[in-house]
C-alpha cells in the first residue's frame, strides 16, 4: 500500500465544497448532532473518527439529506439543503456515497448498477454511459466482472463496484460511510487502495472510518467526534502525535493500543 502522506498542494483553499453552520439534529428527543460547524474546501480530504454512536455517520448522511436536519444550515456545492426536492436531487447527483454494506442493486448486473443513474438522472445515452462505467470499473480493477450480478462477487469486489457506481455520476464530492467495516481483513486493503488512488486525483472526500493508517496517509484533516459534537480537529500528524483533549487520547489509546 502506497501510504506516503500526501501534500496539501492540490488543495484550493478558497473554494468551498461544503459549508455546515450550527447544525443540530434530534432523533425524537435524542440529540444526535450538537452545533456542528464544518467547512470543507474543494479538494480537501477529511477523515471523521469517533466512538460508535458519536453521530459521525449521521453527520455525513445529512450532507446528502439521507437524514433530515432540524436546525442549522448545510450548503453543498452552492446549493442549500432545504425541503425543496429539486435542490435535494441536485445535491445528491453531485455527491457520491459509498455505504458500509455496499447497497448494490442485486437484480441488476455490475454494469447496469453503474449505468443506471447516469442514464436516468444525467440522461446520458446508454452507450456513452457504458463506456464511462467500463472506464471506472477498470479503474477499480474489476472490468471482467461487468456482466455478473452483485451476489456473485466477494465483499471487497462489491465495495469497489459501489465506488465505481458512485464515480460514474462524476460527482464533485465523495462520502464514505465506514466503507471497510463490513469487510474481511484481506479485502480491506483492496478497497483502501482504490480510495487512495481516488484521493491522489484530488477528489473532495469525507470519510467515516476507523482505518487510522488511511487517515494518516491521505487526510488533510482528521475530525474527532463524541456525543454529537466535534471534539477536536487537526492535521493527521498533530492529531495522532499530539492529541489535545482527554477523550481523544482515550480513543486513540484504545484504537491504536493493540
Amino acid at each position: 500500500m502506497s501510504m506516503q502522506p500526501l501534500t496539501a498542494e492540490t488543495r484550493q483553499a478558497d473554494e468551498t465544497a461544503i459549508d455546515i453552520v450550527k447544525l443540530n439534529k434530534w432523533y425524537g428527543t435524542f440529540h444526535v448532532l450538537r452545533d456542528i460547524d464544518l467547512h470543507v474546501s474543494r479538494g480537501e480530504r477529511i477523515v471523521i473518527a469517533g466512538p460508535s454512536g458519536s453521530g459521525k455517520s449521521t453527520l455525513i448522511r445529512c450532507i446528502n439529506r439521507l437524514e433530515e436536519h432540524q436546525t442549522g444550515k448545510i450548503v453543498v456545492d452552492g446549493t442549500e439543503l432545504t425541503h425543496d426536492l429539486k435542490n435535494i436531487d441536485k445535491v445528491r447527483s453531485e455527491v457520491g456515497m459509498v455505504f458500509q454494506h455496499f447497497n448494490l442493486f442485486p437484480h441488476l448486473t455490475i454494469l447496469e448498477n453503474c449505468t443506471l443513474a447516469p442514464i436516468w438522472v444525467r440522461k446520458i445515452p446508454r452507450r456513452e454511459a457504458e463506456e464511462t462505467a467500463m472506464h471506472f470499473l477498470e479503474k477499480v480493477r474489476i472490468p471482467d466482472q461487468a456482466r455478473k450480478y452483485p451476489g456473485q462477487l466477494s465483499g471487497g469486489q462489491q465495495q469497489r463496484v459501489a465506488i465505481a457506481r458512485a464515480l460514474c455520476m462524476r460527482p464533485r464530492i465523495m462520502l464514505f460511510d465506514e466503507p471497510t467495516s463490513a469487510l474481511d481483513p484481506e479485502m480491506i486493503k483492496e478497497v483502501l487502495d482504490t480510495m487512495i488512488e481516488l484521493a491522489e486525483e484530488g477528489m473532495t472526500m469525507l470519510c467515516v472510518t476507523h482505518e487510522m493508517g488511511f487517515a494518516q496517509a491521505v487526510a488533510h484533516r482528521v475530525i474527532f467526534m463524541d456525543q454529537g459534537q466535534i471534539v477536536e480537529q487537526n492535521t493527521p500528524t498533530e492529531f495522532f502525535n499530539n492529541p489535545k483533549s482527554e477523550r481523544t487520547k482515550l480513543f486513540l489509546s484504545q484504537i491504536l493500543g493493540h
Binding site: 446528502n64 439521507l66 426536492l85 441536485k90 457520491g96 447497497n103 437484480h107 443513474a117
Partner: peptide, 26 residues
C-alpha cells in the same frame, strides 16, 4: 433492506424512478 432505498436516493433518482427501477422490480 433500507439500504436499497438509500442507495437509490443517494444516486439522485427521484421517487418514481427509484420505485420503478430499483424498488418495485425487487
Amino acid at each position: 433492506p433500507r439500504g436499497q432505498y438509500e442507495a437509490a436516493d443517494a444516486l439522485g433518482l427521484d421517487y418514481w424512478k427509484a420505485q420503478r427501477l430499483i424498488i418495485l422490480p425487487q
